[in-house]
Design a protein around this nucleic acid. Structure first.
Lengths: 230, 230
DNA sequence: TCAAAAGTGTTTCCTCTACACCCATGT
DNA sequence: ACATGGGTGTAGAGGAAACACTTTTGA
């Protein structure tokens, strides 16, 4: 029987597009860029780039993200591949979406400005090119599911944070108010927080105790998963 | 500013590989083919094919599956895209995995034989080529998650089935024994089953009542999701 | 008559939910 | 002294889990 003959098969361009979520201690935001080339020049889009021959997709996604934000070691996860034949009018391209979670305070503001990128609150993000809005919707759904089945926050919060900030993050992701007593007792039942002796005095006169994640235990919970159900 | 110039970007081959789950009323099985071309000729693999320029991925997956089984209208879902640079020694290819659920009794046995394909119980499936074992593992994990968050069975069972068969399907997917009373009362609480006046006499002297899915309600539950937790 | 699978309810436990008051401090 | 956010516990409801015996009938 024959050797595989791949020569007659069609090759395609493969893009990576990143849905970058950030949290500014109040609301969830998303990082978008204004396109400065055709097609759809001047419109907002996710940041993306093409896969190169010598890299795999995870590497490509990290490269794209790093190029825009200057950040390394970002939490990223592959989401879905979009393949409608005419999704990009310029050529047949497919796109793999990735989502990333970052602490807004940490990125390189200069770099972002240079790339004509901008943070938008999720609620009033503009209409995006191609199927990018669909990508965002799917990413939000995934983020919600993730928040209910694994701890979240390590990547989106500063190293030290208050219970209030953690709760606000969950409220922003789940899109609803939570009861603080229930939230705290539920979250504590996972034993992944370390209470510090320090207080954050910026939000009240009394001050609020700061916490940090127990990184080991946090990671184990990410592996194992749990049921948040709140 | 410039027009998009996609000409310098690398193009790649994109394959679709299908993890085909079937249920023979006792255990979960997976459909594999023996490769009759190099590389890895003679080894077992998932069935796959290359994406064509004029089709999207869902269409390609359906085409590949139909070619092997003769079946239309199959439940399929995109899973993940695999992109390691050297995953296929013959050329740079990426592969999108899809999983499918089918009733083993329904496929075209002749076609399967022609394609040198074979059903394997999940537990003793052979080692597969490339990263196909990894694909299978991820598909199993997805199937489990799906069984806990949405009804399952419509695609894997015959039209009429007994409670026992349904329970065995869940036990096979979740990999553990379930209590029949708890299972029945939990499943009934979804109101997606219709009890028929017929009995299946093949498995016992007393006979067991047959059920079928209320297709409308079943589909609504698939949309809405639920928490199986059993 | 006995073997083999079908069918059927109840109790216990645990988790989720709802809910309100006092504390510490800077102004 | 008071306004602001921080911090804490409990009672009730609902869902999950554990559990065993009777029924039917073909061999």
């Amino acid at each position: 029987m024959a050797l595989a003959n791949y020569d007659n098969e069609d090759k395609v361009l493969l893009a990576v597009d990143c849905i970058i979520f950030g949290f500014d201690r109040e609301e969830l935001k998303i990082l978008l860029v204004k396109r400065n080339f055709e097609p759809e020049k001047g419109k907002w889009s996710l940041i993306g780039g093409f896969l190169k021959k010598e890299e795999n997709l995870d590497i490509a996604a990290v490269r794209v993200l790093h190029h825009l934000t200057g950040l390394h070691d970002i939490y990223m996860e592959q989401l879905y591949i979009y393949s409608k034949v005419d999704r990009d009018p310029a050529d047949r391209t497919l796109s793999v979406s990735y989502y990333a979670l970052i602490d807004i305070a940490k990125h390189d503001k200069e770099l972002i400005k240079q790339n004509s990128a901008q943070w938008f609150p999720l609620k009033d993000a503009p209409t995006l090119i191609f199927d990018h809005n669909e990508m965002v919707d799917r990413a939000i759904a995934r983020l919600k599911r993730r928040a209910l089945s694994k701890p979240i926050g390590f990547e989106l919060l500063p190293e030290k944070f208050t219970m209030r900030q953690l709760q606000k993050l969950y409220e922003a992701i789940l899109g609803k108010k939570l009861d603080k007593r229930n939230f705290i007792s539920k979250f504590n039942s996972f034993h992944i927080l370390i209470k510090l002796d320090e207080k954050d005095m910026s939000s009240s006169k009394k001050g609020a105790f700061l916490f940090k994640f127990d990184e080991e235990k946090y990671k184990r919970k990410v592996e194992d998963g749990f049921n948040f159900k709140i």
